[in-house]
Nucleic acid binder design. Structure first.
Lengths: 353, 353
DNA sequence: CTGAAAGCGCTTACAG
DNA sequence: CTGAAAGCGCTTACAG
């Protein structure tokens, strides 16, 4: 069951254990002849390095960091919560995790945080990124020091990270559009969209995806120009209230960004029928709004799953192992009937007796 | 960073390493006085056992088995595929996996397979279960031999397994109903349901959940009595074709069970508008039907996620560790726009460079 | 460029 | 009931 060890390889190759180790781990200072012999033996025996043993002997600890935007954003609170929760369990695997607060959506702030990372010993970091050339230099330095870097939720400049974990926001927007279209079922209508900022790539992509599907498959629906909200609940509340009063012409709301508290406020205090309503990210208030029938759908990106995946990926990257197979990460549709039991604490549905 | 070791504990407790080990691992044959001293030291130092080291020293291998129904069922093919794929990667962690074919939906067959498990050394098993008292005896014997047992997709008798991994089928049915209701958007309609067998608990539960939501929230919709299909595509094809011909009275189809190939066949060959259409489990043909606009929604239970979870859970159970936090497992809604890239091979959306 | 040896944190006989 | 010692598969100085 358990395969050949390095001793077996060394013996088969006719070299010492230490030499075999040197070629396996590419430590250099080995004669080509020895290298060939060892490589050959590895091949013949099907040797596979025992990572656990290696980690034990070198007293490996994984020092990880997550760079997460600060602020009241409920979505990132969920991300934090899940990191903290996982960290507790992962400490048994010698994984220590640090969450670094980053000023939200500030390239300068993010850059500084990345530079600061140099101050502490680190093996891997997951970063809620931004697309900016300003980040390239500090990221390059980080990686030069052997730190594994991945983008989380929002990508980093692609050449300067090893992987990205997040949903495709165009797909998220397309999904929202499909559901909105289905809900109209052939009837004509007009959809009022809300967007935080067209500079935010995720917002722009969602809107694009949304428009594409409506244009292609629901010719009777019109996508109204987005109202710019800066993700501010007050702005959303006011503009949504306006739209609700301006007659029955608006048949659906789609908020591409955050600030849903305001949207929900406008809907819940407005008399009469409301439009079909789709928002993003399942958090306490959007969940409650689903339950209260103030909105119809939430498109979510499962931050819990993303965080889990970040841990697995960082470990694999740090150990320089093959990456584990990861199921696709698609936007999840929530209605009031398939809500998880507890958004914040991720109560397990697994029943332990 | 790395905490105290057993040596530290032994020293602090004033006993030998071996004695400390005996109380940590409850091997017995220790004086109460020693036990107390060690317990005390563990408490004071915050000792936590290094599972990796322990596994190395005892040359631990995890021998796991999955009991999966045979047959042409595309859903279980997905389950198998993911197990096989994961197995490849897990072998690096000394985890070996065996898939045992079980005759589908036969209590006797399942019982025999469980009994046969006794023939091979095993640490843990995940079983696509059935509810039958016939299974209790063999399961009890298995667990008495120290094998960790969990139910997968379909539960086992609850007292005879340590955990269950699967969705709540009532929730799945409720979700299907919510979407069907939304798609009618206030218009009246009649929903033709199809069920494989009312004896199958998952089918019955889905139908129940579906009916509950329609009755409670969509008074203008009627749920027609289910057509019994035995999951046979031919039966589905014929009865769906009938329903389609009998006028425009049917506004939606909901197939609680399998055999969707037949349903899709009927729809795709039938002229004119089709009803709103919801089925379960994303497999090759249901995915294609979404793309081709022959159906509207697929409610899926993410077998890939379930299998991953089964591995994590079995390991934790076998190591007798605390269970990792697991995100909720809710039915996933697929439309044609949030389809994963590759249903069978689970291609990674994680982009590696 | 190569090798012998100690040590990582544990478990498992073995001897008392 | 208790302890000393070898060994799991590796890495890391250290000596040649």
């Amino acid at each position: 069951m358990s395969g050949p060890t390095l001793s077996d390889v060394a013996e088969a190759a006719g070299v010492s254990y230490a030499t075999a180790d040197r070629v396996i781990n590419k430590r250099g200072n080995v004669a080509q002849k020895s290298i060939d012999k060892v490589r050959d033996a590895v091949e013949r025996l099907g040797y596979v390095r025992n990572v656990a043993a290696a980690n034990l002997s070198r007293r490996r600890v994984y020092r990880l960091a997550f760079l997460i935007p600060t602020g009241s954003n409920a979505f990132f609170s969920r991300v934090r919560d899940h990191i903290i929760q996982s960290a507790d369990h992962l400490s048994a695997d010698s994984i220590s995790v640090r969450i670094v607060d980053v000023s939200a959506f500030s390239v300068e702030g993010l850059k500084d945080s990345i530079v600061d990372l140099a101050g502490s010993e680190l093996d891997g970091v997951a970063i809620v990124g931004l697309q900016s050339r300003l980040l390239e230099q500090p990221l390059a330095e980080l990686r030069a020091r052997g730190v594994a870097v991945i983008g989380l939720v929002s990508d980093l400049p692609v050449e300067f990270r090893s992987a990205y974990i997040g949903i495709d926001n165009k797909v998220a927007g397309r999904t929202a559009a499909r559901m909105t279209g289905l809900a109209h079922r052939g009837r004509a209508g007009a959809i009022q969209t809300f967007v935080g900022s067209m500079e935010a790539r995720d917002h722009a992509e969602r809107l694009q995806g949304f428009r594409d599907v409506i244009a292609a498959d629901f010719p009777d629906l019109t996508v109204l120009d987005p109202i710019l909200t800066k993700d501010d609940p007050a702005v959303l509340c006011k503009s949504a209230a306006n739209a609700l009063q301006s007659g029955a012409s608006v048949t659906a709301f789609y908020n591409v960004g955050a600030g849903n508290v305001g949207l929900i406020e406008a809907i819940s205090t407005s008399p009469g029928a409301r439009p079909f309503c789709v928002v993003h990210e399942l958090v306490a208030h959007s969940k409650q709004a689903l339950i209260d029938n103030h909105i119809d759908l939430v498109i979510d990106q499962r931050p819990d799953v993303e965080v889990n995946r970040a841990f697995a990926l960082l470990r694999a990257l740090i150990d320089d192992r093959e990456l584990p197979p990861m199921p696709d990460l698609m936007p999840t549709i929530y209605v009031r009937d398939n809500l998880p039991a507890d958004t914040l604490n991720d109560a397990m549905e697994v029943q332990i007796r």
